[in-house]
Design a protein around this nucleic acid. Sequence first.
DNA 1: GCGATAATTAGAACTATTCCAAACTTAGGC
DNA 2: GCCTAAGTTTGGAATAGTTCTAATTATCGC
Lengths: 141, 141
Amino acid sequence: MSISSQNADALAERLSHSGLRATPQREVVYNVLLKKRDHPTADEVFARVKSELPTISLATVYNCLETLVQCELVRAVNFERGPTRYCPNLRPHAHFHDEHTGKTHDIDLPADLLDKVSSVLPQGYDAKSVEIIFRGKTAPH
Amino acid sequence: MSISSQNADALAERLSHSGLRATPQREVVYNVLLKKRDHPTADEVFARVKSELPTISLATVYNCLETLVQCELVRAVNFERGPTRYCPNLRPHAHFHDEHTGKTHDIDLPADLLDKVSSVLPQGYDAKSVEIIFRGKTAPH
DNA sequence: GCGATAATTAGAACTATTCCAAACTTAGGC
DNA sequence: GCCTAAGTTTGGAATAGTTCTAATTATCGC
């Protein structure tokens, strides 16, 4: 079984779990995200998907991305004003935004860190998710 | 000396430090942010400022907010797609976004937490700032 | 006060996203 | 296998938030 059809299966399962259907558009959008994990915008996903599905519309790309976010297969990320970016990394991780290159890197987090961070919340605050964003520069290489 | 003129002095100093001028518009925008710290959008700031400066334009509000961010008197915050929000709290703090009310709360952070969080960065990553966003719900009250 | 520079203004332009209504697809019941 | 209902896609129009532009106005140092 190819990696891609494994993904397709996982996707189909998550979708049907929510009463949704597996469609070629959804599969291709998801595979595009998995293939190049550079936090693309909807427009960038659109461009990449077109080579496989030339007739897909931008509205569909937005729909598919939204669906994947709902299914929790993909995270939508907003660092600053500007287009939303999409990230298929489901492990607990932070984002490092390099202000020189504009690139975003995933930073894996040790298992206990999010708990430690959440422990600063006062009584009565119930966090469902925690997002950590670093901004700065990376060493020349 | 009134609180407001203290702010005005602090603002004027920061501005001239960057070769910028103190203007009524910049002062009023800054005071509006300090007065009601509910993370308003540019539109909301515009509405509030109008009562004092009825002829101010929305473009000027955007300019002033941008200037204040440059001077590091104000932080711009983007939780998700949607308008940028502005926060005059300069202490180290996280944001808690209540998904029910839509409101955003500041969560003060212990002095060492940001260092602790930053210590997860691999060699070669040099973070200039760290942002922490919680999402969830707050207790009924 | 004068000139140079900076800031403000209104409106047009632009970008990212959502909405809409029509066409198409799919799954399941017969 | 066909029909129907529901879900999905599509292109274009509409919207929201922000930035740009060119003209006017204000401010600072001299």
